Amino acid sequence: MRAVVQRVSKASVDVDGQTVAAVGRGLVVLVGVGRGDTEEDARYLAEKVVHLRIFPDEDDKLNRSVLDIGGAVLAVSQFTLWGDCRKGRRPSFVDAAPSDQARCLYEAFLQALRDHGVPVETGVFKETMAVHLTNDGPVTILLDSRKAF
């Protein structure tokens, strides 16, 4: 599984012009499920997300996690994180998991976040969404459960 993690002061998701989810201070996590990913990948990624120390402490050092600050996570499924652009001009998505598998593992990721006690809001799986966010910092981190980067 892959994730783009952004530290935000606020964020929301709209579907068909209606806001379906919103958070204040916390994280926006764009999540992509790849072929061959498992529930272990979902748990690993959730563990990594909730413990990432990317919020400042009293000395302005990045020493606090979303758990430490009492923040929330807005998680949005995004298969395009598996787009392979190494060849040609159109991304190939053959490495993205099939929809049923992706939904299952995305939901496992959400549950793993909740199991850590983090408030979680979500986009709508397989819908076209408008994600609005104010990136705080900006701070953006890339994660991969296979540790490819």
Results as ranks from 00 to 15, higher is better:
A3M: 00
V5D: 08
V5G: 08
V8E: 01
V8Y: 00
K10Y: 14
K10A: 15
K10T: 10
A11T: 10
A11N: 11
V13D: 07
V13E: 07
V13R: 09
D14N: 09
V15P: 15
T19K: 13
T19G: 05
V20Q: 14
A22G: 04
A22D: 08
V23A: 07
G24W: 13
G24H: 09
G24S: 15
G26K: 05
L27K: 10
V28I: 08
V28R: 08
L30Y: 07
V33H: 10
R35P: 01
D37I: 05
T38D: 04
T38V: 03
A42V: 06
R43Q: 13
Y44H: 10
Y44G: 02
L45K: 04
L45M: 14
L45D: 09
A46I: 04
K48R: 10
V49L: 01
V49A: 02
V50R: 06
V50Q: 08
H51V: 05
L52C: 00
R53I: 04
I54P: 01
F55I: 00
F55T: 04
D57C: 04
D59N: 15
D60T: 11
D60W: 10
L62Y: 06
R64A: 05
S65V: 01
I69K: 06
I69T: 05
G70Y: 13
V73D: 02
S77E: 08
S77W: 07
Q78I: 00
F79A: 12
F79R: 11
T80N: 09
T80G: 11
T80S: 08
L81N: 08
D84P: 11
C85M: 15
R86Y: 05
R86T: 13
K87I: 15
K87H: 15
S92K: 05
S92A: 09
V94R: 15
V94A: 14
V94Q: 15
D95I: 04
D95G: 06
D95W: 12
A97C: 13
P98V: 05
D100V: 09
A102C: 07
C104N: 12
E107H: 07
E107Q: 13
F109P: 14
L110R: 12
L110D: 00
L110K: 08
A112R: 12
L113V: 00
R114C: 09
R114N: 06
R114H: 06
D115G: 14
H116S: 03
H116R: 07
G117D: 01
G117A: 01
G117N: 04
P119C: 06
V120Q: 10
V120G: 02
T122R: 06
T122V: 05
G123A: 08
G123F: 03
V124H: 08
K126S: 12
T128P: 06
A130D: 15
H132P: 09
L133P: 08
N135H: 01
N135I: 03
D136Y: 14
D136C: 13
G137H: 02
T140N: 14
T140Y: 14
L143N: 07
S145R: 09
S145K: 11
R146I: 02
K147V: 09
K147T: 09
A148I: 05
A148C: 10
F149P: 03
